[in-house]
């Protein structure tokens, strides 16, 4: 995957790249998993890519959602002709 520090065929990095998302998700069959893991033992760059890809996915799992503002929710109810459910407290 990188342009340096490789003492083996870059083609193998490229070949495995397309399967890394499935690997991170645990959706890859056993043979391909073993192939990726064997490759990572020899290729620091690919090990870092897999690790940081996994971290990317985990980081976004923790991304908080901005809730719909209360006034936007009220406008939504009014637009849907649901005024009966908007009260004054």
């Amino acid at each position: 995957m990188s342009t340096h520090n490789h003492d083996h065929d870059h083609g193998e990095c490229r070949k495995l790249l397309k399967d890394l998302s499935d690997y991170v998700d645990g959706d890859l069959d056993e043979t391909l998993c073993a192939e990726i893991e064997r490759h990572m033992d020899e290729c620091d760059n690919c090990r870092v890519v897999v690790d940081t890809l996994r971290k990317t996915v985990l980081l976004y799992h923790h991304l908080p959602a901005e809730p719909m503002p209360g006034d936007a929710e009220l406008r939504l109810f009014r637009r849907l002709d649901l005024d009966a459910f908007v009260g004054v407290s």
């Binding site: 995957m1 990188s2 490229r14 790249l17 760059n45 870092v48 890519v49 690790d51 940081t52 971290k55 985990l58 980081l59 799992h61 923790h62 991304l63």
Partner: peptide, 21 residues
Amino acid sequence: EGDLLPRQLGDWNVDPGRQAL
């Protein structure tokens, strides 16, 4: 395909599960 090739290959010192972002 070329654009998909990872270019940034430094490691990250972040633990998404443990630390507040």
